[in-house]
Amino acid sequence: MPIRIADSLPARRTLEAEGVIVMGETEAARQDIRPIRIALLNLMPDKITTETQIARVLGATPLQVELELLRISDHVSKNTSAGHLAEFYRPWCEVKGEKFDGLIVTGAPVETMPFEDVTYWDELRRIFDWSQDNVHRTLSVCWGAMAALHHFHGVEKHNLSGKASGVFRHHNRAPASPWMRGLPDVFDVPVSRWSEMRREDLPEGRGLQVLAESDETGLCLIDDPAHNALHMFNHLEYDTLTLAGEYARDEGGYLPQHYFPSDDPKAHPVNTWRGNGHILFGNWINETYQTTPFELGDIGKR
């Protein structure tokens, strides 16, 4: 089934060119089906790239997905035009009375800052609390995952001496988990971050389960059933050239490991994680669909 996004969203042209089935609002209205409603709280500066990446993996699932783009209410983006935000994004303050089957919270380029120093930290905490009564399942990514674990469980993050960047092999620690269904015992995941959270800092007795981790870069994916949430520190949604673009943007700061053939930044990288990303996001969408109430208004009644 297709993903439902605005007809004029830039991501639409990219996805259609790749063969992803995209549905407009008029077509969606003719289908006698309740789409699964997913909100994307996009904290990344380049919002168009991120919304395209997330829409791509959601659009590959067999369900009709209605994607709602959200932003922090009072934060002004410096890298995305005001026109794009005004046309396609709704501030959270406008939707906090609504219900969603799923919420995805992205990363943000504030990893080295204390959480409390981030200008929108107070509103993000309110969003996390709001999700417990208004969202059926949440998926947090990169810094968003660290923020959620810090908010709900008090876990501290640790700044790295250098950027963890590249494509790293990860171990599937819970192959029987519905979130890991279909993923191999060892699989590749792109990593791009300046900080980390550590297994030894996870509190006991909270039900947190490590689903995937790497010998080189540590924790990757954590199940948080008490809050109906998955926390992903890395980036299975990345395009083939995303890490190359970051390397060029940083003017050769940190060469992504296990990414460029023969570690040659002029060589074209090979995508070894695309299928893993589709499996993980597909599992999340499927579990959300299987367990969400039929009536949106019943979400949060536990």
Rank of each mutant, 00 (worst) to 15 (best):
E204L: 10
A147Q: 03
T292H: 05
H171P: 04
N134I: 00
R90M: 03
I33V: 06
A108M: 09
E51W: 03
Y238M: 04
D263M: 08
E68P: 09
I285K: 06
T106N: 13
E98W: 02
Q31P: 11
E68Q: 14
N286K: 06
I3S: 06
R249N: 01
G162A: 12
L70P: 01
A174H: 04
A55Y: 00
E25H: 07
V141S: 07
A244D: 11
V105G: 03
D250S: 10
F115L: 13
V65W: 00
L58Q: 10
M232R: 10
R274W: 06
L219E: 09
A11G: 13
H158C: 08
R302V: 01
Q31T: 08
H231C: 12
H151K: 10
A39L: 00
A212S: 12
P62A: 03
G19F: 10
G19H: 13
N172F: 09
V76H: 03
L9M: 07
R274N: 09
P2Q: 03
L221Q: 14
E251D: 12
H258A: 14
G154D: 03
Q31V: 14
P10W: 06
S165M: 13
N228D: 04
P265R: 10
R126W: 02
Q64C: 02
V65Y: 00
G24L: 02
D101M: 15
V186R: 08
R56D: 05
E246I: 10
A244Y: 07
G144M: 11
T61Q: 05
I36A: 04
S195D: 13
L241I: 09
R302T: 01
L15H: 04
T52H: 00
I33T: 09
F152H: 13
I72Y: 00
S161K: 04
Y247R: 07
N271R: 03
G102K: 01
C142D: 10
C142V: 10
E295W: 06
R169N: 10
H75P: 07
N134W: 01
D74N: 06
E196P: 01
I5Q: 02
K266Q: 08
L296E: 08
R199Y: 04
V118H: 05
Q209L: 05
V191F: 10
H136S: 08
N172G: 11
S8I: 09
Q132T: 08
M197G: 02
K163D: 03
Y238E: 01
T26D: 15
R274A: 07
H231Q: 06
N234C: 11
W121Y: 15
R71K: 14
H158A: 15
R198N: 14
A86G: 11
D122H: 11
G144C: 11
N134G: 10
G83E: 15
T26K: 12
